[in-house]
Amino acid sequence: MFTEAFMIRAFLAALFLCPLCALLGVFVTARRMSFFSETIAHGALTGVAIGIWMGMTELTIPVIGFGLLVAMAIIWLKENTELMTDTIMALLLAGSISLGIFILSLVKGGYLGQVHSYLFGDILAVEDRDVVVSGILFAVVAVSVFMNLNVLTLISAHEDLAHVCGVNVRRVNYLFVLALTVTVAVSIQLLGIMLVTSLVVIPPAAARNVSCNLRQQIVYSLLIGVIGGLGGIALSYHFNAPCGATIAMSCISLFLLTLVIRLFTRKRNANQPLLPS
């Protein structure tokens, strides 16, 4: 498994992208933004369609570009209309998928393989350049998150309180959305449009089961992201299955394991529930 170059590339990309998604996921779930990353991911289909339609060989750029466009549209509609956030997301999700399908219908054949690999994730699609991009993205985003952990935590707790504490809430929110959008867009190659959000949501949810504070949740989420990601790649190789599905499945297995641990430890500490009923 480790002698083949494409597997080493896939493992390296997973080693960078999975913990990154899991780290951002702690704040995404805390801020009820899961559906936000789902919408950006589905917007990527239009990015893929535009890229194929225009005959581009490198689709990461249109995927990131359209992802950012969808993210900006969500923020603009939130700030300038009375619509509820979930309505806005559903609107853009339907809009971008329909646009993507429409554009694909204009293309004359030969694109199904590419679309399939973007929809479900493909370890064979990861190239050297993707590994480098993942590595740089990991370094930049992870370092930025850890350097601004106070600010991110405070905003997740209460935006107005963060403002009074001197945080430029608007700027941090925009930067967080930018980081999330680019991370999701880059991760799509490995995880696929359909399941990329699983790596943003499941590791922090699993970590929550076995954590007593935020520090533990961050550490466990990173660990679960790495183990789930690498395990998923190995399963994908073994069963010749799309790696988006195998990574999501291994993350869900870890979630179930932490759930069992939680139920077991809670039973033993019945008098000290983690949360009130």
């Binding site: 779930t29 805390a30 922090p204």
Partner: peptide, 11 residues
């Protein structure tokens, strides 16, 4: 706070 966000008082 979301219940999934387990910020402790100390933190």
């Amino acid at each position: 706070l979301e219940r999934s966000f387990i910020l402790s008082v100390r933190e």
